[in-house]
Design a protein around this nucleic acid. Structure first.
Lengths: 134, 134
DNA sequence: ATACTACTTGAAGTTTACTTTAACTCAAGT
DNA sequence: ACTTGAGTTAAAGTAAACTTCAAGTAGTAT
């Protein structure tokens, strides 16, 4: 079975080693062997786990909920409803955050249009644009 | 000119009064009069400002950058390039965050499909679904 | 007059997700 | 033998954006 050092994992996921140790500390990464009782060794299961963490983080799930998910997942038959509930609740939140982001982005882009015109007006000495007419 | 108390503003923006005071403290809200030297009074200009803050927050601009924007905006002719740079930089970041959110959402939705099937399988005593076949 | 309510202050505390620090441990290379 | 490099630990520190606290004030209601 292929094994990896912490710096390999670090490069793989663009995460500092300290973060990977931190994830282990809070119980997000489990069963990390320490060879010679001091050096960490990772395998495919940790890579899978980190990929899942990455996805959940992108969906804005807080670390403690990601951890709870992995706990529930160990007995998915018992916990399928709980997991489903959790995922659906987060789906709503994620969709809301996407809507906010769209609103915010539109505002940013309006500012960009406006200040592009301001910049041009300043350079050519022409009158400044009107925000409300955009 | 219409004026508002802190609790009216609080309700208007769904922000606790403490947050509105905090924004004043860090310089995001300016020129807030304190009548009888103790009670805050807000007007339309503060409402405009808070609306702008809300939009920028949705675009994920940190408060110190929002503050910097308002400072630059006071002399937009001088600072149009700086503002434009700031908005464009943030636009890129916001778009990136939206992509992440989309990825995360897709992952969430796959989990929802999977655990819906798990839940059904458990209820009907049929075999569990396979994650990789979804 | 007293109580009540809405508001005030500065300072300290909270949360999340890390990051940094200091002192230490191996194993390998020169 | 010594240095170097990668890794280790527990504990403290950081950053952002608030939130809570304790003690106090001003205007209104009873």
């Amino acid at each position: 079975m292929a094994t990896y050092t912490i710096s390999e994992i670090s490069q793989m996921f663009h995460l500092p080693a300290s973060t990977i140790r931190y994830y282990e500390k809070i119980g997000l990464l489990e069963h990390v062997e320490h060879i010679n009782s001091y050096r960490r060794v990772y395998n495919e299961s940790h890579i899978d786990r980190l990929n899942a963490i990455e996805c959940f983080k992108k969906a804005l799930l807080p670390l403690d909920e990601i951890k709870a998910f992995f706990t529930y997942e160990k007995d998915m038959e018992q916990n399928s409803e709980k997991i489903l509930q959790m995922m659906k609740t987060q789906e709503v939140k994620t969709v809301e955050r996407m809507k906010d982001l769209e609103t915010g982005l539109a505002h940013l882009q309006k500012k960009i249009r406006f200040y592009t015109l301001v910049d041009e007006a300043v350079k050519h000495g022409t009158p400044l644009p009107n925000w409300d007419e955009l």
